[in-house]
Design a protein around this nucleic acid. Structure first.
Lengths: 188, 188
DNA sequence: TGGGTCATGTAACCTGTTACATGATTAG
DNA sequence: CTAATCATGTAACAGGTTACATGACCCA
């Protein structure tokens, strides 16, 4: 998956590893976090597959840069991946895993958990406004507005997700409050 | 994360590896899929940590079972994990990764993508009704209703997520249709 | 007696995380 | 001159995937 993300970025234009890392952080990290070390490793693997080629440019200073560009084969692979029917994507949601077992804690601890959740699980750590501005910055250098439209779609998803998460937390808090009041009533 | 999921299940009662696998499938697999082989490996690691203990029971037939039980240390670790502040959970959403790069395809392909998404990404493959019934089956054997309440919460999340996903798809289709009509207008 | 489910794994591989290492360039 | 950023990685480990292996039990 990360492989295809990198491939997709290189499809917009050649970059060195560091640039891939920064563009990745600015655009994809809302829903996929990758370590720098992993990006460099994937670049090697991508090159072995013949999907990208690297050209080392020795600077006068002796400092070398490694320019990565997508190959024809890489472009074909990107298209293949986009069109493949993918089957089911594996889901792994750490938040749900914890929620599932929260009955081990007290009701009040449960309520606190859901109260602090929306802020903790926020997708846009610096606020969505900044993310929107950042996207518009990039958009200036992308001739095709259709490409940034899909970027916007992923951000719309993020916003809808956050809204839904807040609603879910309120719902859980409400049910827990009910249980709490019922049990205190029964104890009289 | 999987470690703590298994620990949480064993906290409800002792089981063998196969039972863990089936309970996992019935209850946790909506948001966390694990292979049988991985469960058995994690069981070994859990035992090394002293969080569970295994007692091999030789049947008369010679067929042996491996009963796993949580230890005091394991119960403490489960509580610790539930209460820890967890920091940020890493997010990895394959669906968004693909969406981001979908500008490489035609508008019609994009529209088709979003039209078939809700069904493909469904969290409850056999329908949510079956999942609800399954949960109620388990509930009978669990004395504490608070524990299955959190199970219900995870399922509520799943339902709200699916609803949100459908809304998001409709939103994306609408915007793509607009772009499509605009561009055909401009070409006149 | 044959197929489905119960039952327990191993091996190889791939992907993601954490920690570390090194040095150049640039802005204040 | 110093700190931030640019730039490129390696090594070890943890977690997840795929493929395979083996055999008992149970029901029709």
């Amino acid at each position: 998956m990360l492989k295809h993300g990198i491939l997709g970025l290189l499809n917009y234009g050649s970059m060195n590893g560091y640039e891939i890392m920064t563009v990745f952080r600015d655009s994809l990290s809302f829903f996929w976090q990758a370590q720098t070390s992993q990006i460099y490793r994937e670049l090697q693997s991508l090159e072995k597959n013949g999907w990208i080629k690297s050209t080392r440019v020795e600077q006068e200073s002796g400092h070398e840069r490694n320019m990565l560009s997508i190959t024809k084969k890489g472009r074909a692979e990107l298209k293949r991946w986009l069109k493949e029917d993918g089957g089911k994507n594996p889901v792994r949601n750490p938040l749900m895993m914890k929620t599932f077992f929260l009955g081990e804690c007290s009701i009040d601890e449960g309520i606190d958990f859901f109260k602090s959740l929306p802020e903790k699980e926020s997708i846009f750590p610096d606020g969505s406004d900044k993310a929107v501005l950042l996207r518009k910055e990039y958009q200036k250098n992308m001739p095709d507005p259709l490409k940034t439209l899909y970027w916007k779609f992923t951000m719309d998803f993020g916003l809808m997700y956050e809204k839904m998460l807040r609603k879910w937390c309120e719902h859980c808090i409400k049910e827990l409050e009910e249980v709490k009041h019922e049990s205190s009533f029964n104890q009289r």
